[in-house]
Design a binder for these strands. Structure first.
Lengths: 336, 336
DNA sequence: CTGTTAGCGCGTTCAA
DNA sequence: TTGAACGCGCTAACAG
């Protein structure tokens, strides 16, 4: 890589003259600026990132910690993050916590050495289970802002971007009730996570708020590693009045669909299904699933905006924002 | 962030003493080292990344350019990249080219300013179509090594990690022939990409090499945006002797399965199917697809190894390697 | 208008 | 055993 020094030498001017010329400092004569810029272009000069960062104590880099990149939601979100970051001249460094508390701590520590200006992250599952949060506090104390997305912690003061999870299931449940459904089951496949709880709550609220719905809430919790499809099938056989299913995650959604089909039930005449899912999945389901989709891309880009805003304008006494990104309810062939 | 200077001041020693102590320089007395290290730990001192990079002209950061992060293959690959990089103390900066030539050029230029020590990339579709490669040459001339994975360019001298695409379809085809299939169709949904061509070639080779197989190769090319499922269905109706299908990508695999099922054909009695696919997809297919899976994770981690090796040991007159990662053929319920 | 100088944080001579 | 001084590449205050 060519440096300012070499350009200066080649043109017999001082180093600072070159620096000023390249930064369009009006002190330098138009002629000199032209000569310098031409040579710079010719030699493909690019200011050294490390030097600029050292000087300015800004890296223009954002650290992103995602729990699981194979999860389509986070992949989409990363796409939104990358797009927004690139549009604002920021690079992103990605770490994958793998849902591990330790890896999360490690990643934060590793990047908090002047590698990044701030963090974007979704809290790892293990961190939530252990109820740990001091590592986040430490980072914020060090002056590095954090924006949490999707999985956030109430105990941490920082900007947050979340889905309105409660409302999403509330709407879905209300819709099924308005279809005339009398016994709606909610399948929770991710109950250990905060979002699972919120979504379940929305379902329960909708039922409580409805005057026409008589049955009690019916929540089927499936643990990781369980044989989802057979459990669902069993439940349906034992409770033949079930006429609506809301799945809190996409795997359970497809499994339910398979289970319902194998029972010979007609969709959506006998039973309706709505699932949290990604668009891709819909392509592969038949009949095409009615879904609640998270605007993952938007959560990502919004998070970047919040972080950059904070980096530029700083923090003035707890003016942290929590932004809610709307979900989208799409009715296809598995609802009336 | 606390600096060496502040530690020095607090302990009334010189800056260089602190620096040496922290780097276990034997010049410093054990006692002083201990005092300094204790304070450093207490103050959570971390050497400033920019300063170290500037000094050493090494960033310990790898630039990764993927064409599409929503593609499960690349997501998996990134997982492999991140894991291997983290294990070796490297950070990864991710750019998404979105299959665009321009974005690819931009990303390379943007990171070639001392942000990264080298690149890992899969060539964007547009770049392949335009047959552009000077941007890669430029980067390599600047001294930044590139490792290409999955989609590579013959015209560029660099380390490469690829799937043995030709062999993968060769094996799949051979297997179907050994099942007694007499008219095997290959569906190519990505013919504009190099891998599509290679996979098609493997299929053709297998047929040519077989003495028992009489039919000519039958390749159905589907363009982007075409109605894959109806095209496949039409083809099957017009050619009822087809008893085997190999799909070169995962979408076509599922579409074929749906088409075959809707024709009322029995699987695998009447017809066999094998598709390039990700494991996730298999979960959603019924009957469960026999697949050719790419070891995406391994391609990613292997790429990192190659790059780090080159960064550490440099380049000695064209000793570039091309590593082939094996594919995996998994027979499930859509083959005999 | 141009050049000299200092300093960002660090490691590494060289001198004491 | 410790410290002073220099330089990585850059910007900016200050001199000329």
């Amino acid at each position: 890589m060519i440096t300012i020094k070499e350009l200066a030498k080649e043109l017999n001017v001082s180093i600072s003259t070159v620096s000023k010329a390249l930064n369009d400092n009006p002190e330098i004569s138009a002629d000199t600026v032209k000569r310098i810029k031409e040579l710079a272009k010719l030699r493909n000069y690019k200011p050294n990132k490390s030097a600029v960062s050292l000087k300015s104590s800004k890296t223009n880099t954002i650290g992103v910690i995602v729990p699981d990149i194979l999860n389509n939601f986070f992949a989409k979100l990363l796409y939104g993050v990358e797009s927004a970051a690139a549009a604002n001249g920021y690079n992103i460094i990605i770490c994958i916590s793998n849902e591990s508390y330790e890896k999360e701590v490690e990643s934060l520590q590793l990047l908090a050495n002047g590698t990044v200006d701030g963090f974007l992250l979704a809290v790892a599952e293990e961190t939530q289970t252990l109820k740990e949060d001091t590592h986040f506090k430490k980072i914020i104390e060090e002056g590095l802002p954090i924006v949490m997305f999707d999985r956030v912690l109430d105990t941490i003061d920082c900007d947050k971007v979340i889905i309105n999870d409660t409302e999403s299931t509330y709407s879905a449940t209300t819709h099924l009730i308005s279809e005339g459904r009398k016994n709606i089951m909610l399948i929770n496949h991710i109950d250990e996570l905060n979002v699972g709880t919120l979504r379940t709550q929305g379902y329960i609220n909708a039922i409580n708020d409805s005057s026409s719905y008589d049955n009690k809430p019916l929540v089927l919790s499936i643990k990781k590693g369980d044989e989802a499809e057979s459990i669902i099938l069993e439940t349906l056989k034992n409770n033949t009045t079930i006429d609506g299913i809301i799945s809190v995650d996409n795997i359970a959604g497809i499994k339910s669909l398979n289970a319902v089909k194998s029972m010979g039930l007609k969709i959506p005449q006998d039973i309706s299904l709505i699932a949290f899912a990604s668009d891709e999945l819909v392509e592969f389901s038949s009949p095409r699933l009615s879904t609640i989709t998270q605007h993952a891309y938007k959560i990502g880009s919004k998070s970047v905006e919040l972080l950059i805003d904070r980096l530029k304008n700083g923090t003035t006494k707890n003016n942290y924002k929590t932004v809610t990104v709307d979900y989208e309810l799409t009715f296809r062939e598995t609802t009336k």
